[in-house]
Amino acid sequence: MWPIIQIELFKIYKRPRTYIAFGAIAALILVIQMGLKIDGEAYAAFLMKDINDTLTVDGKVLNGYLICYILLQLLLVHVPLLVALIAADMLSGEANLGTLRLLFTTPYSRTQWVLAKFVAASFYTILLLIWLAFLALFLSMWIFGTDDLFLMKSNYVVLIQEQDVFWRYLGAFVFASFSLLTVAALGFLMSSLANNSIGPIVATISAIVFFTILSTLNIPLFNIVKPYLFTTHMNNWKEFFDIQVSDSNDAITGSILNVAKIKNSIIILAIHIALFVGASVWIMKKKDILS
């Protein structure tokens, strides 16, 4: 199956649309970094308003690690839209172009083609995430330096020691890859249902927006389905940045508050990926190629 994966990767590499997402991420990150570099202290002061009433915070709060967290918080909500741009076009784009029949009249089976296309879409997604990590983490570390991560959550503050931060980002990026692959798989499923490019992209984005609203609304009726929605779990990369405390309220270095929550989220996202890709394969196998 490697030759057809290579072909799919080559096509992604050659397609101009591929680079929109990379460009968009770079532009967004650079603008935010520039803004925080120029006026970051005011932003930090705003965030720390309540804390400053009680405590004096001494040290480089606005360091590369916090900048990366802020960037991920903002971007990991929007990157799925960029992933949808490619993933939701993988099958329907070819159907629209008429090239699907070229592929499906080769000796490779439809299942192989669909899986190869998903592998290629996943590769693109991971590459996008690596690009995001490079700019959001490494570039921020270079521009802003590193220090402890002083994380202001809604109801409490977490202070993670500098040497205890980097591995958490690695974990968060691995987790984020599951989130984005779920989006890619959803886009893929939508793509298998249509013969044009725009429909599945819009449908994928709409589905993400719809389920995100369900996930964030605190209405008892929705709470029943929430645990099973992929959107409920997509943002749980943040769990890597919450820390256990001992009985005497000391944060335990190297610990994660809720490992079970992360595992559960990864399992649910993986099930979604398998279901979406499985359904795509089934649909494409049954489909008459009329385009």
């Binding site: 029949r101 499906f104 009249t105 049954k286 008459d288 190629i289 009329l290």
Partner: peptide, 8 residues
């Protein structure tokens, strides 16, 4: 298309 297995 049926000869080429594009249509079932």
């Amino acid at each position: 298309r049926m000869l080429l297995s594009l249509i079932h």
